[in-house]
Design a protein around this nucleic acid. Structure first.
Lengths: 339, 339
DNA sequence: CGTGTCATTGTGAACGCTAACAATTGGGCG
DNA sequence: CGCCCAATTGTTAGCGTTCACAATGACACG
């Protein structure tokens, strides 16, 4: 941007003049219309490459009203989940001939969400994918009425199209694994409850406990970070407290384990810990972490499918992908230490 | 995209008619030109909000040649480093009034890089930031001649503008820390060497060893993943081998530690391990990981500064930010186990 | 040899905005 | 009172495409 004026390249007309045809013919060649004789097609092609002509997207957009771009409204992109989803979206979008314009939110206020959305729409995106698993952001988005199609990720708010992993099922699988191991006092280390994901996982935990007629263990409150897991670990009652803890994500599980061990508690002998997400490192944590695997990339791909949804009628309201339990070494039968 | 035709919104002229002024006056109001009387300004504002008018970016672009958007060419975004850089860029770009159009590479071939770059340019980006620390990608980018300004992240290839963290300095700091602890047999677990970062860290390790007249320990080869670190850990010679290992990133360090421990090796007693990056979890690894902190977000912000570079003349070729050593518990004086 | 048909090519008018310039107003002042 | 200047507003012409339609030419057929 050292240059103040963007130099303009050759236009359709320039090519046309050089090739000795009309601009429309050039346009036809560029857009691969049939009904252009082989001879002129060749002439035009030659002129195009000689001038190094490239179509002006602005003019196209203006003339056709189409931009071939999709807007991404994202919160935290530095986290494993969201950034993986983005990769999946990118992949699928490219395949479908779309571009991605990304805007991240500075906070989750209504103002910020609206501003970001407006920006995106002003830039002509043909669809919006919101990777903002934040309750308040989703509420704002849910109220937006627009002709531009929108897909939210993991909202499950019942408003409009939403693509989500079935986190409740994942949480249930986690808890049932613990139940099978004989645990009866199962605590939960929740993520920030204004995140939909945290809410879903909490719900799953609760419903699985109910199903097995178990009382609810304590719920610790974290913020997804390993540090918050560590702090929760310092607060756990080691004497008659939970024998198993289901953490809302792997990072918190990591911190939790760290604190518990520092307090002389052996994992999984004294306390079983289970995480969520299956980040690539989870297998190498100490002990290797039992967790629930989420296929974030698939989720991203689904977003594009739902958004583009050429199939028309097929209602896929609430597409859902099922997470999978991955058993490793941080969970063990209850009471190992009493044997 | 269920809608085939994008319905067009109201235009400047519509607003003008409603407000009873000329379209140019509306344009002036929208663009905050001075020299518009308060009265008309109000009328126009009212008309704008009544019609819910929003400026058409395509027309603007066509008329002015400016898009206010910056293209991001990215490789892996699902990794901590790159995605953090992106967050930093986004932040600074927003502040400077720019949008981000993101394209990820499907591979690092010349064809893929060129294709992505062309796509970006066709979409009218005013500048390009390449977050592709991959040697081959940077080579391709280095050869591109274009009027569009480009900034590469972490390349340090000496071609054009490049913003980088001084990874060599970081690596040297890491090694010197080990030297101070009395280690003399210091190995390196390198990242994939076609990544510039891996190369720089290897260079730093090598030069620090040279400076202290130490022989080079073995170099293990990883791919940034914890799994590759684990595999390297299985290959380490525990008998007369290195007493300290400098890993190319935290994830590999994690896997390395895991394998070493499984083989009965105590960390840091028998072997000290140091990582790189300081991912948020590193502090909670077991043992808490000594590492070198990189400020990725700052790096992202620098990109925008360099790209926009309003300051004109000030040559900031090779902007460099210095990483910082963070000492935790995975490193200890050599020979602890012999005491 | 006129006429209809098809394939190919050309013409003019949008699309919605900004830039440059022209026109109109209202004061201030000699 | 006439003139000039500044502030405000309007007018016109692109920007580079595509779209709808018109024009041209070749060819077959009655």
């Amino acid at each position: 941007m050292t240059e103040v004026t963007t130099p303009r390249g050759p236009s359709l007309t320039d090519v046309a003049t050089l090739a000795g045809v009309s601009h429309q013919t050039v346009s036809r060649v560029v857009n691969r219309h049939p009904n252009v004789s082989e001879a002129t097609r060749r002439k035009v092609r030659a002129a195009i490459s000689e001038l190094d002509y490239r179509p002006n997207a602005a003019a196209r957009w203006l003339a056709t009203g189409r931009t071939h771009s999709i807007g991404i409204l994202a919160g935290e992109l530095a986290q494993y989940g969201p950034s993986s989803v983005l990769m999946g979206i990118q992949d699928a979008a490219r395949g479908a001939g779309y571009f991605l314009t990304v805007v991240t939110l500075k906070d989750y206020s209504e103002a910020a969400v609206n501003e970001a959305l407006t920006d995106l729409l002003n830039h002509g995106v043909e669809g919006v994918i919101a990777i903002t698993p934040h309750v308040s952001a989703l509420e704002v988005l849910g109220e937006v009425q627009g002709s531009t199609p929108m897909v939210t990720v993991g909202g499950g708010h019942g408003l409009g199209r939403d693509v989500a992993l079935d986190q409740e099922a994942g949480a249930i699988a986690a808890v049932e694994h613990l139940v099978e191991l004989g645990h009866t006092r199962i605590a939960h280390l929740a993520g920030p409850l204004d995140w939909v994901d945290a809410q879903r996982r909490l719900d799953g935990w609760r419903s699985a406990l109910g199903k097995h007629h178990l009382g609810e263990g304590p719920v610790y409150q974290g913020d997804w970070s390993a540090r918050s897991g560590y702090e929760a670990g310092l607060a756990v009652d080691l004497d008659g407290g939970p024998t198993a803890i289901f953490a809302g994500n792997d990072q918190m599980a990591l911190g939790l384990v760290k604190a518990l061990r520092e307090r002389g508690c052996r994992i999984p002998r004294d306390v079983s810990v289970i995480g969520f997400d299956d980040v690539p490192e989870a297998e190498f944590y100490e002990p290797s972490l039992t967790t629930v695997r989420q296929e974030f990339q698939d989720l991203g791909r689904s977003c594009i499918e739902v958004l583009i949804d050429r199939s028309g009628g097929v209602a896929m309201e609430g597409e859902s992908l099922r997470p999978r339990l991955v058993v490793r070494s941080s969970t063990a039968p209850v009471g190992g230490h009493r044997r």
